[in-house]
Simulated assay, not measured.
Amino acid sequence: METIFNYDSPSVALAKLKEKGYTVDFNVEFDSISNAVDEFTIDYLYRYEGATDPGDESTVYGIRNLNTEEKGVFVAGDLSLIEGRKRDIIVQLEIRSKS
Rank of each mutant, 00 (worst) to 15 (best):
G21T: 01
G21Y: 01
G21H: 01
Y22I: 08
Y22C: 11
T23I: 08
T23H: 09
V24G: 04
D25L: 07
D25W: 09
D25P: 13
D25Q: 12
F26Q: 11
F26I: 05
F26G: 10
F26M: 07
N27P: 13
N27F: 07
V28T: 12
V28N: 11
V28L: 09
V28A: 11
E29L: 09
F30K: 05
F30G: 04
F30T: 02
F30C: 03
D31N: 15
S32R: 13
I33M: 11
I33E: 12
S34T: 05
S34F: 06
S34G: 13
S34P: 05
N35Y: 03
N35G: 06
A36R: 02
A36T: 00
A36F: 00
V37H: 04
V37P: 07
V37S: 03
E39H: 14
E39W: 05
E39M: 05
T41G: 08
T41W: 02
I42D: 09
I42R: 11
I42L: 10
I42F: 07
D43C: 03
D43F: 02
D43E: 10
Y44E: 08
Y44A: 07
L45C: 08
L45I: 00
L45A: 01
Y46W: 05
Y46T: 01
R47M: 05
R47W: 01
Y48F: 05
E49M: 10
E49R: 15
G50M: 04
G50R: 09
G50N: 05
A51L: 04
A51G: 10
A51N: 07
D53N: 15
P54L: 10
P54D: 11
G55N: 08
G55H: 04
D56N: 15
D56C: 15
S58R: 11
S58D: 12
T59S: 11
V60K: 10
V60S: 10
Y61P: 14
Y61G: 12
G62V: 02
G62N: 09
G62D: 07
I63P: 11
I63H: 11
I63L: 03
R64F: 07
R64K: 15
R64H: 09
R64E: 14
N65L: 02
L66A: 03
L66V: 04
N67K: 15
T68R: 06
E69S: 15
E69F: 14
E70I: 01
E70M: 03
E70D: 05
K71W: 00
K71N: 00
G72E: 10
F74A: 01
A76G: 14
A76C: 14
G77N: 12
G77V: 03
G77H: 12
L79C: 04
S80R: 14
R85P: 05
R85S: 08
K86N: 09
R87P: 02
R87S: 06
R87D: 02
R87N: 07
D88V: 01
I89A: 10
I90N: 06
I90H: 08
V91W: 02
V91S: 03
V91Q: 08
Q92S: 13
Q92M: 07
L93H: 12
L93F: 10
L93A: 12
L93S: 11
L93E: 10
L93N: 12
E94Q: 15
E94R: 14
E94N: 14
I95E: 13
I95T: 12
I95C: 02
R96P: 01
R96D: 00
R96M: 00
S97Q: 03
S97P: 06
S97R: 03
S99G: 05
S99E: 00
S99F: 00
